[in-house]
Design a binder for these strands. Structure first.
Lengths: 212, 212
DNA sequence: CTTTGTGAAGTGATTCACAGCA
DNA sequence: TGCTGTGAATCACTTCACAAAG
């Protein structure tokens, strides 16, 4: 009754917002405090009209004759993109790649906080890697629910990836980043992001990672 | 004079072909040898008409009344997607994440062969990790050219990522997968894939990884 | 004068629906 | 009968162009 949508937002708009966000972050570091859609267009690689249209789906952030205030627009985009808060994450599979990702600072920088890791190797259970405690896989459901974890990173061998993903979904997780191949479809509306090197060169071009 | 295009192929078609390819791989493992666009639609999550349209941009692979032969279509897609041959890859930054990726078997499975690694730490130069020789970063240009390497994986700290990417481009590399944040635009027509955790949940949805 | 925000126009992508083949 | 391949129709997205605001 109340939540009425105004306009149809194109599917690719949110992706472009993330590009604008990154461009603005760079501009802010360079000390630029205001920018026009025309100038942002040069940096972000989308047309000025496109940028203005994308932004006005969410509000009026600019001022005619002046352009957009970098810090203000950036913070608006943080809210729109949902990166204005922390996301709690669990990592399953504390192998070589798993441990590297636990140590990888990039996640934390983007407000993804890894709260727990899981493995079925008794050697690893109870230990900490990069400050993250490893639990046994049997405890997945319990720990994920009690810590209210929202997202899972899957770095287990391909053979078991599908089972792990099913377990994560059962535990109520809302998004998954998988480094193993998975069947394309999980029905429950869960998004599985698959990190999967594909090709983006010589005229060929498809997404290296995609989401369904 | 000779290379005349027939039809305009939508930008997202190639991405969808990669989804079809993965679905077909699973079907082949399950012993399915023939499938209709309607059934593939169920698995791949795109409409049957969409699937037929996408495929006919590249040829006529099906038979009326019968559908598509899984093994045949799969091999056609391999060719279209450019994954019917090996791609030679260099990895720059033999840190924790770099070594994990060197050990990661997923790349080789997709015909990405890591031919060389680079680091500026004298301790690492000359050593091998997972069978890959580490060279000094000063040798990047020479090694990449002599081994005819086409793609680079960047796992260096964020501060130097931009310089490394510039060097790779100078060395003639055609595609880059970067785990560090980078400015949005590299002009030379090089594709930079940035692995960059973003959000794909609760109505929010943008690409975890994107390419420009 | 500069630049936003936005309806209208134009372009591009998807779905429809069916002729034709197996 | 079953299903592909494809023009035509529909739907979605982007660009144009300009009124209004600073």
């Amino acid at each position: 009754m109340s939540g009425e949508e105004k306009k149809r937002i194109p599917k690719t708009t949110v992706y472009r917002l993330s590009v604008y966000y990154r461009a603005l972050s760079n501009l802010e570091e360079e000390g630029v405090d205001s920018i026009s859609s025309a100038d942002l267009s040069e940096i972000a690689g989308f047309s000025a009209a496109q940028i203005r249209k994308d932004l006005t789906y969410y509000g009026q952030f600019g001022r005619p004759g002046r352009g957009y205030v970098v810090s203000h627009l950036k913070s608006q985009l943080r809210t729109i993109l949902g990166i204005d808060r922390d996301w709690s994450v669990a990592l399953v599979g504390v192998g070589r790649l798993g441990r590297a990702l636990l140590a990888y600072k990039g996640f934390r920088k983007q407000n993804f906080i890894i709260e727990a890791a899981f493995d079925n190797d008794p050697e690893k259970v109870g230990k900490e890697f990069s400050g993250v405690r490893v639990y046994h896989q049997d405890e997945m459901d319990k720990v994920i629910r009690s810590k209210k974890i929202e997202m899972g990173i899957v770095t287990v061998p391909e053979e078991v990836a599908e089972i792990i993903v099913a377990k994560l979904i059962d535990a109520g997780i809302k998004a998954i980043l998988s480094f193993a191949h998975l069947p394309s479809i999980f029905s429950n509306g869960i998004k599985v992001n698959q990190v999967d090197l594909s090709i983006e060169m010589e005229g060929l071009s498809y997404y290296l990672t995609h989401s369904k």
